[in-house]
Design a protein around this nucleic acid. Sequence first.
DNA 1: AGATCACTTTAGTAAAAACTAAAATAAAAA
DNA 2: TTTTTATTTTAGTTTTTACTAAAGTGATCT
Lengths: 116, 116
Amino acid sequence: MVDPIAALAAPRRREILRLVWREERAAGEIHRELGDVTFGAVSQQLRQLEHAGLVAVRADGRRRLYRARPEALGPVGEALAAIWDDALYRLKIRAELESSRRGPRRRPTSAKGRRR
Amino acid sequence: MVDPIAALAAPRRREILRLVWREERAAGEIHRELGDVTFGAVSQQLRQLEHAGLVAVRADGRRRLYRARPEALGPVGEALAAIWDDALYRLKIRAELESSRRGPRRRPTSAKGRRR
DNA sequence: AGATCACTTTAGTAAAAACTAAAATAAAAA
DNA sequence: TTTTTATTTTAGTTTTTACTAAAGTGATCT
């Protein structure tokens, strides 16, 4: 992926972007905040956002701090921020994630079973 | 699909939306303008844009006229329009579509071969 | 009526995307 | 130096999406 607007497609990525919009956050914090995906999945989405230029990373000890780069979206960035400031919109997004979950999830963190 | 921003994900849909942004166009016109997809595929993408509230349809004889509904995108709509007015961006999108084609295509229109 | 035109819908395929589980890396603590 | 913590990467699976081909619908023309 390389196109910033396409990177906004997935609600998951938009949620992550919103989390790091105002302030830096460590990957783990983001994972905990989202709750219903593995750490690996979050890391992968962060990578995509990074490749699209939508976030920047900075190492801090063993943590990695992410922050949004609104410049990458140009005028769309401001528009998006305006939407995010709207509390109703926030509820809507929550509901969306909720209903698009593909089955019961119990906050997985890394791994447990055996497959390969 | 129901989320307008997610509907902007595919470059193809963005291209279609841009075509109907300023003026109404018939489905067939849009198909001819795009060139490298079947009529059916265009019709399907129009349906998605419609479900996301991004376009409105109106029947005119046997044609169906589509037009954009920028309101559906709120402030993002204006931002997007600003981007589209930029000629460089238009070239970029073209190149994107060009390189994401999944094989050689020779302007298919409906059907020809036999499969099922 | 039948033919044709403009378009939609359905069925099936193929490619892309998102995810899980597990292994790998790398800094810091013990 | 071993262990723990934070995160990334890889491999494989499942889900979703975009597409083609072909059949279906309905308005207009003859």
